[in-house]
Amino acid sequence: MTLLPRKRDGHPPAHTPGYKSSVARSPSRALISGPASPTELSGPTFGHELLGKLDNNLVVNFTGQPAIGERIIVHGRVLDEMGRPVPGALVEVWQANAGGRYRHKKDGYLAPLDPNFGGCGRTITADDGSYEFLTVRPGAYPWPNGPNDWRPMHIHFSLFGPSFGQRLITQMYFEGDPLIPRCPIIRTIADPSAIERLVAPLDMNRAMPMDCLAYKFDIVLRGRRQTMFENQMEGM
């Protein structure tokens, strides 16, 4: 089994001066490629016993009382580049509250903390690769980069596929947010079609009448290939 090579032009490069924090934190030398060993091809697996009943419900998982904000379902499927569902993937999310404030001592934004919003959740994908969260729509927030830079509404996602070499952290944005094309972090990605793949559409088929709206965010991890010829090739 091997991993498909990462196609780096669909990702942000390391050095992106428009996002100032990257300047001193980006490797300046070329990445070294080589044969992945079983260590990069394997990875930790997580069972459903890890999960608490409310882990994927950010509306109530902090205190049991509902958080303030617009209730939304965020759902989708985790697939690989071959188009196959990835079951058993650990999906972890974190986000600001409805006012755009994180529960973190380094976040001093004017917006208030919501006493009932912790800001994180997790789940494990089902056999068809699907996952689902209930949360509140995060607020946009300003951040110190340029003189007046704002993050669009977003949810951070961390993903574990079956291989440690598939590890991925990304962010989901919301259809129609006018801050998306202005965001220096989004603009670290050069390819406009790659940016579109981070923007979740409103999904009225999953919205629940008189309850919540829904957004659909599918995530694609690096492909793993195994061919029937793979072992024979070595002896050729």
Binding site: H11, P12, Y102, H156, L168, I189
Partner: peptide, 12 residues
């Protein structure tokens, strides 16, 4: 399918 683009893990 192309791999989902990475984004920084950010300060939080």
């Amino acid at each position: 399918l192309p791999e989902t683009p990475s984004q920084t893990a950010g300060p939080y």
